[in-house]
Design a protein around this nucleic acid. Structure first.
Lengths: 178, 178
DNA sequence: TGTAGCATGTAAGCCGTTACATGATTGA
DNA sequence: TCAATCATGTAACGGCTTACATGCTACA
């Protein structure tokens, strides 16, 4: 039955479980607005190739109209996702944090260089938080337990806490460096 | 001069700035004990190939003795690292969090399945925290400002805060799900 | 005596990115 | 009319992993 797929492929398939039918282009937009905070937003070209793969396995169906192709998840797709969720362990998260990596070897540069990097990162975190806050707001109205966007809302709250905590931690580090 | 390298290559080079000379095998162990919390711990085979690359660019020198080859950073290596730190922007962190991704589509499975996944993740976080705590303890004695392991200690504290905060957030999510 | 750790690599292959290419539609 | 957005791909390539291979040393 369903051989396993790269996680990104399951992720894209998962974005099709919210009741609508999307083009590759739209799926990429959805990935940009949600997936990128906890996973990665795959390149446009990868979205198309994953859709081709999912389609070849019968996990999505393609519908063509006016030169655009929309994709919908199939029953087999939903089943594959469900068994993936139920039967494979999640595995630990991977954090690739260039700021932490650079601070690790901060002895090579001046305190000011390190502090500047951290301050810039706080600004980037503020941007990230603002973007995520917008996503969170968009879910209001359907985010109660049992409603369509309950889980996305939980994850968005998680993300807000995550990036907010990181902001606090960085501000603390700046104080310790100065 | 120094073309740029993949970040992992800079990371490994950075691990050689703490005053000693390591074999590929030992470098991998150092990566496992520090780098993996904020970046990735490259596969053994990649450590060797990165060392070959760094060596071919004159950023490290190899010394052979008793069938083991140790590597030391060169002045050119230190210079390349410093300009990298000073002149290229850090870029934002990438988080690949399978637990968050799975929770996003948690509507496909039961509350119990979601809660179990989160509980398992808390256990994994505890392991991670314990390992990082050990690393942090090993730095005591040379972690004051100006001392050799000041920056690694700062980053370790960051990591402890990071994973500790995540633990709290997950416990909160479990409460909201139940 | 055999297993675990030390030590060093090669080869194949996948995931994912960037660069390249094309064309329609909409709005300034 | 020109730029931005929508829409869909192909090709090349790099980074990184897994699997495969080899051999030595220390220890239970």
């Amino acid at each position: 039955m369903s051989q396993d797929l790269p996680i990104t492929s399951y992720a894209l398939l998962g974005l099709l479980t919210f009741g609508d039918e999307l083009t590759g282009y739209e799926l990429k937009q959805r990935a940009d607005s949600t997936l990128r905070f906890y996973w990665v937003s795959p390149a446009m070209s990868q979205v198309y190739s994953e859709l081709t793969r999912l389609s070849s396995r019968g996990l999505v169906t393609a519908h063509e109209a006016d030169g655009r192709t929309t994709y919908a998840i199939t029953d087999a797709g939903r089943a594959a996702l469900t068994t993936w969720l139920e039967e494979t362990p999640a595995g630990f998260s991977v954090l690739k944090h260039p700021v932490a990596l650079r601070l690790l070897i901060g002895h090579l540069v001046s305190v000011e260089t390190n502090v500047k990097m951290l301050r810039d990162h706080v600004v980037a975190l503020d941007d990230q938080l603002a973007a995520l806050q917008e996503v969170r707001e968009a879910l209001r109205g359907a985010d109660a337990p049992g409603e369509a966007f309950h889980h996305p809302a939980l994850v968005a709250d998680w993300g807000l806490a995550h990036y907010g905590n990181e902001r606090d931690t960085i501000l603390d580090l700046i104080r310790r460096l100065e």
